[in-house]
Every structure is written in C-alpha cells, then in structure tokens.
Amino acid sequence: MNRTTAAPSYPSTSWDTPQKASSPTVGEPIVADESIVRPPGELLARIRAGRVANDTDIDEYSPRSTRPFESPTSIRTPATLLAEWNGSVSSIEQYCFTATLKGVYGEGIQGEYEEAEIPISDVSESDMELLRPGHFFRLCVFYEVSEDGQPSRSTQVVFRRLPAYRQHDLDRAAERGDELHRGLRVG
C-alpha cells in the first residue's frame, strides 16, 4: 500500500473555539473526578464476592474525564474509493510488474482498458506468492481524512484469490480437450 499525505488543511473544530475556564485545555493532563473514585481494593473485593458478573456500572471505577465528550469520528471520514481497476499481470520485471487494467470504477476510468507499470513494493508480503503472470488483482485509489483532519490519498494493490482449479475439473477438461483434438482434421 502506498500512502501519500495531501497538503495540510485545517478544518474548523471545537479546538478552535475558546474553552470554558473550568475545562482543561489541549495538552493538559486529564484529571479524574475524585467524587467517583472508589477506595482501592473495593473492586477486587467485589470480584471475589462474585458481584461483578453482569455488573454494568463497573466502569464507574475508571477515572472519568471532565472534558466534554467529542467523538473522534466527527472529523475522520471513512475511506472513499476514487478509482478501481481489475488487473491481470502481464510480466514481472526487477522492480515493477506490468499489467493490463480494465477500469471498474471512477471518472474517465470505468470500462476503459489501459496498461500499467506498478512497483512490486506495492504488493503485500501475503500476496507476493500470487504475483505471477496471468494472475488477477484489484488496484484501488482511496481518499480519506484522518482524525486530525489531514486528508490523504492512497493506492492499494490487492491480489484476488480466485477459485482454484480442481483435479476433477482438470480431468474433465482434459477429456474435452481430447475430444476436441479427435474432432480436428489436420490437412
């Protein structure tokens, strides 16, 4: 997977707005609310007493932040697919492999046939055994915005694990091949 970070941009977040005097500021350590802190050893005692099964208020024992809750997903966006090709490996060179691509999705891509040179370093270790002429893969381009608001794009090469040839099918194919051969007349 190749990841590239786009030029920084600074979306408006609640961090930009002034905080109340009582609220912690960015960088300040989170302080536990002492009103809910139980004496040490109480949880252990409750566990020993078998009182914690299905105990839904057990997280009361964790230190609780007084900072207003902000879901990090309010900034992060899920990865958006910008482009996708179905590829087939044509040849393998020292640092890259060549492939024919058929556009599956994307502006100016869908339905188009292209050729490509793709760095072998983009192939994951687990897919490396599938990097062979004739094998199929998907090439995708994604766009996403990270938790800190940083937009980024990435390309991803994922080799497809198509169904495998089965001996039974190969045997039957060989019979059909023999039959085809017998039906041919060579002059």
Binding site: L82, G106, E114, P119, D122, Y143, S154, T155
Partner: peptide
C-alpha cells in the same frame, strides 16, 4: 494521454505511488 481523463486526485495518487498508466488505444 489516458491519465488526462482521470480526476486530479487519482492522477496525483498514481504518480505519487509511482504507478504508470499507458495508453493502449
């Protein structure tokens, strides 16, 4: 130029990923 018809984001991603697309038409 096959990449000319693609969106800017896709073109930049392919270039930055060192992926070259060739015209075959």
């Amino acid at each position: 130029k096959p990449m000319a018809k693609m969106s800017v984001s896709v073109r930049r991603s392919l270039r930055e990923g060192m992926i070259r697309i060739y015209d075959s038409n």
